[in-house]
Each structure stands twice: as structure tokens, then as C-alpha cells.
């Protein structure tokens, strides 16, 4: 694990996410998620697959308490965040980057402002209002946009971009948080197949460069196999598969999604 090499990165504890016995029931007695436990650490990308309505989105939102879990615990880099509230919860959320299916950009703001929105948890309200972000943040935002090929779009409004470009901005915003874990909720579902692959490449590459564990909700099994090193299969609120893509057999897929005609 941690080696004392004097290197700033190595001196920090490894970035990780641990979910323990997570239960979420919107109605008492009818859990959507039932006793979910898993751990992701280091440069690791994990896909969560499963049919629609099986609680993938709920699981991701329970991690940062956008949806409060019914019971269970979530640890981000060792810190238990399940009991936090108010300012402490906000500070914990800065460590959890999130990428959304519908991008969730502020359409009327420019690309740059959207990316800098990732720093809103760090800067004061006054700074946010006056748009006086620290020079360091601005430098990093420019570098990030350059690295994902959006350098020419810095001053354009978000609503003038294509779907793939918007999702890149969404990813850049999440990376700006310097998160300890990156959650992506169906990041490719609103995109065409070619753009989907490009977005997966950007996600995986950035998470590796910045050493952030990556968790992706995705219903496209082929994309999951191709881009991640571990797959968690979710069905009816429980984990029914957890292992490398090579071990994911048709039998597993049948258990996860039900039926078999689609596997031919």
C-alpha cells in the first residue's frame, strides 16, 4: 500500500471507495438495493452492469448521499461519510467526482465556467460570484481542456456543443474536483456508438493519469468488457457477479439480465 518515498503522491493514502452492507429502500420492506458491499482502490476501473431499474443509479447516488441510504456505510479513502451532514458532507462530496448521463452542464454558461464549477466546493461564494477563481484552478482547467481536445471551445457556451463535447466538459468538471473516486452514471447512454467509445477512452485515460478509481454504471456489456478491468453485475438489488471481464460468461449475463434470446 503506502510507501514512504517522500513523493507527494505516494505519501497520501491510496485513493479508494469502500461500500459496506449498503441498503436502500424507498418504501420500507421493499429494498431497491440489498446488502451491497464492494471495494475499489488505486488505478482501477469498475463497470456496474445490470438491467434498467435495478438500482444502478440509486447505488451511485447513495455513495455521495444525493440519495440518503437506508443503512450501511460508505468509506472514501478510509473516511466514513455515511454519517456526515452539512459542511462536513459538502467537504466529503468534493472528494467524489460525478459524471452524468445527461451531462448536467449549466447550458447558459461557457465551457470554462462549467469546468470551473468543479471548484465550487473549494472557492468561497464571493469568489464564485465575482468569478475570481485561483490562478492555479484556471491553469489546471485550461490544461485539462487542452488534454481532451476542447481548447478551441473554452469561451463557447455549453449549449452550442455536441453531445460528445458536452460529456467531455462534464468529465473535466468532475476531474477539477481532484476527487478520490470518480462515479459515472450511464455516461454514454445519450451518445452514438462512436462517441461512446471516445468518451470511455477519455474517462479511463483521465482516471489513470490522475490515479482516480473509476466506477461506471453502464448497460452496454461490450463497452464494459472492453474498457474496464472488473465488472460488477447487479440484479434485483444484489450483486450476482464480481470479477474480471474474462470470467463473465453467458450464464452470468442470463442471471443478470434474464432471458437468453439477446445473447445470440
Amino acid at each position: 500500500m503506502t510507501t514512504r518515498t517522500g513523493n507527494a503522491l505516494a505519501a497520501q493514502p491510496e485513493r479508494s471507495l469502500r461500500v459496506e452492507h449498503l441498503v436502500k429502500a424507498y418504501q420500507p420492506g421493499k429494498p431497491v438495493l440489498n446488502d451491497i458491499s464492494f471495494e475499489v482502490r488505486g488505478q482501477n476501473s469498475v463497470a456496474i452492469i445490470g438491467p434498467s431499474g435495478t438500482g444502478k443509479s440509486t447505488l451511485i447516488r447513495c455513495v455521495n448521499k444525493l440519495i440518503p441510504p437506508t443503512s450501511g456505510a460508505v468509506f472514501v479513502s478510509g473516511e466514513n461519510i455515511s454519517r456526515l451532514s452539512g459542511r462536513a458532507l459538502r467537504h466529503a462530496r468534493r472528494k467524489i467526482g460525478m459524471v452524468f448521463q445527461e451531462f448536467n452542464l449549466v447550458e447558459r454558461l461557457t465551457v470554462m465556467e462549467n469546468v470551473l464549477c468543479g471548484r465550487l466546493g473549494y472557492v468561497s461564494v464571493w469568489q464564485a460570484w465575482r468569478r475570481t477563481y485561483p490562478q492555479d484552478d484556471i491553469d489546471r482547467a485550461f490544461a485539462l481542456l487542452e488534454s481532451i481536445g476542447l481548447a478551441d471551445f473554452v469561451h463557447q457556451r455549453a449549449d452550442s456543443l455536441s453531445g460528445g463535447q458536452r460529456q467531455r466538459v462534464g468529465i473535466a468538471r468532475a476531474i477539477m474536483q481532484e476527487p478520490h473516486v470518480l462515479l459515472a452514471d450511464e455516461p454514454t447512454s445519450s451518445l452514438d456508438p462512436k462517441t461512446s467509445v471516445e468518451i470511455m477512452e477519455v474517462l479511463v485515460q483521465l482516471s489513470e493519469v490522475h490515479r482516480i478509481p473509476l466506477i461506471i454504471n453502464i448497460h452496454d456489456v461490450e463497452l464494459a468488457r472492453r474498457f474496464t478491468s472488473r465488472i460488477i453485475g447487479l440484479s434485483q438489488g444484489g450483486i450476482v457477479f464480481d470479477g474480471p471481464p474474462a470470467e463473465l460468461s453467458n450464464d452470468h449475463l442470463k442471471t443478470i439480465y434474464g432471458g437468453e434470446a439477446w445473447l445470440q
Binding site: 444525493l66 459538502r90 447550458e107 465550487l120
Partner: peptide, 25 residues
């Protein structure tokens, strides 16, 4: 509500969520 959710998830305090999420819209 999408952008509001995103800014909340980034740990932004409420006034910042209003300034950057609600107000531009």
C-alpha cells in the same frame, strides 16, 4: 434539476449552487 444535482454533488455551498445553477437558468 440536472445542473443543480451536479453542483450539489461537487460539494458547492447553497449560495454558490444558486448563483451558478439556478440563476443562469
Amino acid at each position: 434539476p440536472g445542473p443543480i444535482e451536479a453542483l450539489t454533488a461537487a460539494g458547492a455551498p447553497w449560495p454558490s449552487v444558486f448563483l451558478k445553477g439556478f440563476w443562469p437558468q
